[in-house]
Structures are given as structure tokens and as C-alpha cells.
Computed example of a mutant assay.
Amino acid sequence: MTDDHRKGVADKAQEKMTPQESKSTTDKVKEGVTSTADKAQRDVVPDNQKSTGQSMADKSSRTVDSHKDDKSMVDKAKDTLGMGSK
């Protein structure tokens, strides 16, 4: 179950499965903004105030993020728009 104002697991999976080349710039920007907002919400609300499913998804997401490289917000925005280095 997804808590209010959060992206659902199915939405996140759909975004990941859709190739970047087939997304419009608007779609890429929207995904970047909503993903950033979702991660902020993930980190602001304590896990004990979330549904069990949301808490588990957030713990998993934090684990994945902790294993990613340290990019600046500008570099992440460029990657979202498909303008990052390859």
C-alpha cells in the first residue's frame, strides 16, 4: 500500500521499465520532480508513521541509494533529462 502523496511501487516500476528514449522531455522532468519529492517524503516521515508496505519500500530505496555514486543535484537533473555523460 502506498501512503498519501507517494509514488506507488507499480508507478516506479513502470518508469524504470520504459526506455528513456521513448519518454518525452516533459515525462522525464515530471519523473525527476516526483522522484525527488518522493525521496524527500521518504526521509522526512519516520518509518513508524508509515504503512508497513511503504516503510519496507522506503528502507529498500534507502539501501539502493546508499550504494549509488555521489552525484550533484545538477548531474542528477542532467541524467533525468538525458543530458548527462554516458
Score class of each variant (00 low, 15 high):
residue 55 S to F: 03
residue 17 M to H: 06
residue 76 K to D: 04
residue 47 D to H: 06
residue 25 T to K: 12
residue 82 G to A: 00
residue 66 S to A: 09
residue 43 D to F: 09
residue 73 M to V: 08
residue 51 S to W: 05
residue 52 T to D: 14
residue 46 P to N: 01
residue 2 T to L: 00
residue 48 N to H: 09
residue 83 M to T: 07
residue 62 R to C: 14
residue 32 G to Q: 13
residue 39 K to Q: 08
residue 57 A to S: 15
residue 53 G to R: 00
residue 54 Q to K: 09
residue 3 D to C: 01
residue 65 D to I: 11
residue 33 V to W: 07
residue 27 D to I: 04
residue 60 S to N: 07
residue 83 M to K: 08
residue 72 S to H: 08
residue 21 E to P: 07
residue 21 E to M: 11
residue 25 T to I: 15
residue 55 S to G: 11
residue 16 K to V: 09
residue 70 D to F: 07
residue 79 D to T: 06
residue 26 T to A: 12
residue 37 A to V: 15
residue 60 S to L: 12
residue 49 Q to Y: 12
residue 1 M to R: 02
residue 86 K to H: 01
residue 43 D to V: 14
residue 18 T to C: 05
residue 54 Q to W: 06
residue 4 D to V: 11
residue 31 E to D: 13
residue 32 G to E: 15
residue 29 V to D: 04
residue 45 V to N: 10
residue 74 V to R: 00
residue 34 T to M: 07
residue 61 S to I: 09
residue 50 K to H: 03
residue 31 E to Y: 01
residue 26 T to G: 10
residue 62 R to G: 13
residue 44 V to S: 02
residue 86 K to M: 02
residue 53 G to H: 02
residue 30 K to Y: 02
residue 75 D to V: 14
residue 9 V to I: 13
residue 28 K to I: 12
residue 68 K to W: 00
residue 73 M to N: 13
residue 45 V to R: 10
residue 83 M to L: 13
residue 43 D to Q: 12
residue 8 G to E: 03
residue 68 K to R: 12
residue 72 S to Y: 01
residue 3 D to L: 00
residue 11 D to V: 14
residue 49 Q to G: 07
residue 61 S to T: 14
residue 80 T to K: 06
residue 23 K to Q: 08
residue 14 Q to D: 10
residue 28 K to C: 03
residue 63 T to V: 09
residue 69 D to R: 08
residue 37 A to F: 08
residue 40 A to V: 12
residue 7 K to F: 06
residue 69 D to A: 11
residue 25 T to M: 14
residue 85 S to N: 07
residue 68 K to V: 06
residue 30 K to E: 02
residue 30 K to M: 02
residue 58 D to N: 06
residue 85 S to F: 01
residue 79 D to Y: 02
residue 66 S to K: 13
residue 53 G to Y: 02
residue 29 V to F: 10
residue 4 D to W: 02
residue 40 A to Y: 08
residue 7 K to Q: 05
residue 54 Q to P: 08
residue 4 D to R: 15
residue 55 S to H: 00
residue 47 D to Q: 07
residue 7 K to C: 11
residue 55 S to A: 15
residue 75 D to Q: 11
residue 78 K to S: 09
residue 19 P to V: 14
residue 3 D to N: 05
residue 36 T to Q: 05
residue 27 D to K: 15
residue 29 V to L: 10
residue 23 K to W: 03
residue 53 G to A: 07
residue 68 K to E: 09
residue 50 K to V: 04
residue 84 G to P: 01
residue 29 V to G: 02
residue 82 G to E: 00
residue 18 T to Y: 07
residue 16 K to E: 14
residue 33 V to L: 10
residue 28 K to L: 04
residue 56 M to E: 05
residue 6 R to T: 03
residue 4 D to A: 13
residue 36 T to R: 04
residue 43 D to W: 08
residue 37 A to S: 12
residue 61 S to G: 13
residue 77 A to H: 04
residue 26 T to R: 04
residue 6 R to V: 01
residue 59 K to D: 09
residue 71 K to C: 00
residue 75 D to N: 14
residue 12 K to P: 05
residue 29 V to M: 04
residue 41 Q to M: 08
residue 29 V to S: 05
residue 11 D to N: 12
residue 57 A to Y: 04
residue 34 T to L: 01
residue 48 N to Y: 06
residue 13 A to L: 14
residue 9 V to F: 12
